[in-house]
Design a protein around this nucleic acid. Structure first.
Lengths: 191, 191
DNA sequence: AGCTTCTGCCTAGGACCTCTAGGAAGCGGA
DNA sequence: TCCGCTTCCTAGAGGTCCTAGGCAGAAGCT
């Protein structure tokens, strides 16, 4: 009997594709096995359980997005870098909703997946080199940027901007203008 | 045989509590029935299916949070209103993670639940009365505020700020300072 | 080539979940 | 008292996750 040739890598990648197609909440071991022409139980030689599958997809997505974000940052600085970086996040989320959702999984800080998450905050810090911010303001700014990007993308994905005629693209671009101004006018503490 | 006295309202409320305890993804019809001392099938006289249950929980949460936000806004204006409003969101999310997560469900714009969502954007607009912003900037600002609040809360819930020693409370408060400044210095288009 | 070992994939089956169909029992009103 | 509405039931189909135990390709050794 010919083997299907399942490996952990091919499994995770197929799982990520499946999640993008049907949504992370509909990513199931059974459907994944079906796609490989294999029984459910067979997948358990490659992954421990359904939760691990999701964590691995999260890791894949974090790494993929970090690579793209790094590429978009090359040769750019200041607002230019900010806009490119943010755009990469938004594009990725729209093209890969399942992967993007998986990224929000609560990861064990010890896990290898969590180190990919660290690349993201490091890159966000790199953007801030274009703005003069010392610690702890820099950490606060990293968190604000993460919040703004993720918040917008996540509300957009959930359909939150569909009620109003104003194009989401316009709001996105004006929001980045505003954030740029805010970073250049970062307020002193105890204002 | 005595009746359990299940009604749609009591059901939704219990479902919301259950979601807060075990997470929205672990909210099941079976467990809910168990809590009422009733068989699964009995619940289907009150709700159509599991998806409707989630949507109803989302509606409950949106309405509850809107009420609290409205109360926090009473008698406040400007930055004071901004901080109080934002704080209400964050508190609610921390006390009611299941309800909060449910709120992100993609709602049918025609549904009664979606009208509760409208209350939220209306209140956000009200906050902006303290800052001079004409359309379409106002809409962009509403979206930015929603993104910032939701993004921060959502990253915090997912454990995104645990890696660094800087307290999330501090970052939150400094972020609101920055947003306040940004709203007062909203940039002109085509900068 | 024959042998062993590894492991990818299998069958079988338990536990739990969603949801439908059809029936019985509580409870209010005529 | 009896009727009808609603609540709750039993029965059962079908899907999901996951474990235990086994067989048969594939890979390596002599």
């Amino acid at each position: 009997m010919a083997r299907a040739g399942v490996t952990a890598e091919r499994l995770i990648e197929a799982a990520a594709d499946l999640a993008d197609e049907v949504g992370l909440e509909n990513l199931t071991i059974s459907e994944l096995a079906r796609r490989f022409g294999v029984k459910d139980a067979s997948l358990y030689s490659h992954i421990r359980n359904a939760h691990e599958l999701r964590v691995r997809v999260a890791g894949l997505a974090l790494a993929e997005l970090a690579d793209r974000a790094a590429a978009s940052l090359a040769g750019r600085a200041g607002k230019d870098a900010l806009v490119a970086f943010a755009g990469t996040y938004r594009d990725y989320a729209r093209k890969h909703p399942g992967r993007y959702t998986a990224m929000q999984t609560d990861l064990d800080p010890q896990s290898p997946e969590a180190s990919a998450a660290r690349r993201h905050s490091d890159m966000t810090r790199a953007i801030l080199r274009g703005y003069a911010l010392a610690e702890p303001d820099q950490t606060d700014a990293v968190r604000m940027l993460g919040s703004v990007f993720h918040g917008f993308v996540s509300l957009e994905m959930a359909g939150g901007f569909r009620h109003h005629s104003r194009a989401a693209d316009e709001s996105w671009s004006r929001m980045l203008d505003t954030i740029d101004v805010a970073l250049r006018n970062w307020p002193a503490p105890r204002a």
